[in-house]
Design a protein around this nucleic acid. Structure first.
Lengths: 159, 159
DNA sequence: TACGTATTGTTATATCATAACATTTACCAA
DNA sequence: TTGGTAAATGTTATGATATAACAATACGTA
């Protein structure tokens, strides 16, 4: 099991999260021969401003403010697609919003714990859950490709 | 474990699914003192036309055709809200679409198997998955309220 | 029947996302 | 260093999903 619950749901030095994310992104893109352009990095930084999922239009607003000109949706959505494809961010379907991946590159399945109260999201990858899913699906003869699990509740801070 | 995989992903007499769903809905609403109005029942029937999730605007179109007049979004969204609240249908977040619940009233957690090929969805409630989720969340000190699990892959028919 | 509440109708708009084509930028090879 | 090519971004328009706010109607009950 790998997780970022110990930081995501607690007080911490978020600058370190941000720096780690940017460094990992640069490394990963370099390794893949992908270009982490200014726009893409700016979007990644905005997604990583906290552990709360950010909507695409919120990114558009903030990016427009930063750059002093109106940024159009396709610009941001293209950057988001790029980051999603590389596994640098995830999309939280139930919120139509995006959150940074704390361990990009690492082979992991996605499991998100969404705090109803503060809105922060922790990610986790747990073998026992993956196995339970695999075995349940197998009983039905279903061939699993991917899965998305969103757990809604209260984080340690908000209980 | 309760599931409808044996019908959802295979050839079957779907009229029985539809009838069962409508009967259960009537019973459940009666028991709860809720009114299953004409519109609500019509929407439920449209959702249950197959085991494939149906978008709200698709329902609007079909309902408009049925009634020979333009039905507006709020009408359908209100009916959907009603059906969601009573647990008669579920929303598949990753698809922005709705699917009938095969065992409304029964205490169950939601787990959906979405077939990439044919689009059909089976629902399943599995204790071992619930337990794995509960124990993983507990390790992080996270208090689980609900969860939504969408498994994407290939159903038995489409492999 | 008259009342209050639940439901539905109506209008308008918010929110999320992408198609299609033009332009610019970055990179590589000659 | 220059020109060709592919990748990335800009621009315009529109599609798709969802809800707010208020008016009108229908339903069950006293």
């Amino acid at each position: 099991m790998i997780t970022n619950t110990t930081v995501a749901h607690r007080k911490h030095d978020h600058g370190r999260c941000l720096n780690a994310a940017l460094t990992q992104a640069q490394t990963l893109c370099k390794a893949q021969g992908a270009r982490l352009t200014t726009t893409r990095e700016a979007v990644l930084r905005l997604i990583w401003q906290s552990h709360k999922p950010v909507g695409a239009y919120h990114v558009i607003e903030q990016l427009s403010a930063e750059q002093g000109k109106q940024i159009m949706p396709p610009t941001v959505y293209r950057a988001l697609d790029f980051l999603l494809t590389r596994g640098l961010i995830h999309r939280i379907a139930s919120l139509n919003a995006f959150v940074g991946c704390p361990f990009p590159g690492a082979d992991h399945s996605d499991l998100f714990m969404l705090c109803k109260a503060c809105g922060s999201v922790a990610e986790c990858s747990a073998d026992n859950i993956d196995q339970a899913i695999a075995s349940t699906a197998a009983k039905s003869g279903f061939m699993v490709e991917t899965h998305a699990l969103e757990i809604i509740g209260l984080c340690p801070q908000c209980q």
